[in-house]
């Protein structure tokens, strides 16, 4: 049970050596080792500052050969995140996946996506268009608005 073993190890690792980008990472319940959840913090000094997002993490049975499926639960305004479904467009989660990435490391990459964008693949056309037009003020205001109003208050 390669994935079970690795997930147990990852769980223990996270507990001993937490990820600064997160306030939570672990299985959703005691009996679902293949379904995890996380809470991510915003990036200080960015329009996402002060935000909190809940993420849903589905681990495939052939993990780590295949990547986890990660989605935002509460809304986030980002060029590479589908505003309605929370789907994330990140090559690391698709073609560029490698078996050496852990869930925690993968979430670090998602966290980094908050301050950068994959130019090729916008999932949120509106915010991407604002950036493209150079309307940074508008884009930031919009992001701040949703960061605040959609903030995840649960655990």
């Amino acid at each position: 049970m390669a994935s079970t073993k690795r997930l147990l190890k990852e769980l223990q690792d996270y507990q001993r050596d937490p990820n600064d980008a997160l306030t939570e990472l672990g299985p959703v319940s005691d009996d679902e080792l293949m379904h995890w959840t996380a809470v991510m913090k915003g990036v200080n000094g960015s329009p996402y500052e002060g935000g909190r997002w809940k993420l849903d993490i589905r681990v495939p049975s052939n993990y780590p050969l295949a990547p986890p499926e990660i989605k935002f639960i509460n809304r986030i305004c980002h060029p590479n995140v589908n505003f309605k479904t929370g789907e994330i467009c990140l090559d690391l989660l698709k073609n560029n996946w490698s078996a050496i990435y852990t869930l925690s490391a993968t979430l670090t990459a998602v966290h980094q996506l908050l301050t950068s964008a994959e130019p090729d693949s916008p999932l949120n056309i509106d915010i991407a268009a604002l950036f493209r037009q150079g309307d940074i003020v508008g884009a930031e205001a919009l992001i701040r608005f949703y960061t605040e109003s959609e903030r995840w208050e649960g655990r």
Binding site: G45, S98, Y101, T108, Q112, S116, E118, D120
Partner: peptide, 20 residues
Amino acid sequence: QFVPISPNVDMSRKAHMFRL
């Protein structure tokens, strides 16, 4: 912001949205 999880994570394709 990125703690490298391996030396070769390719972040080069990403554009920074904001100055940090």
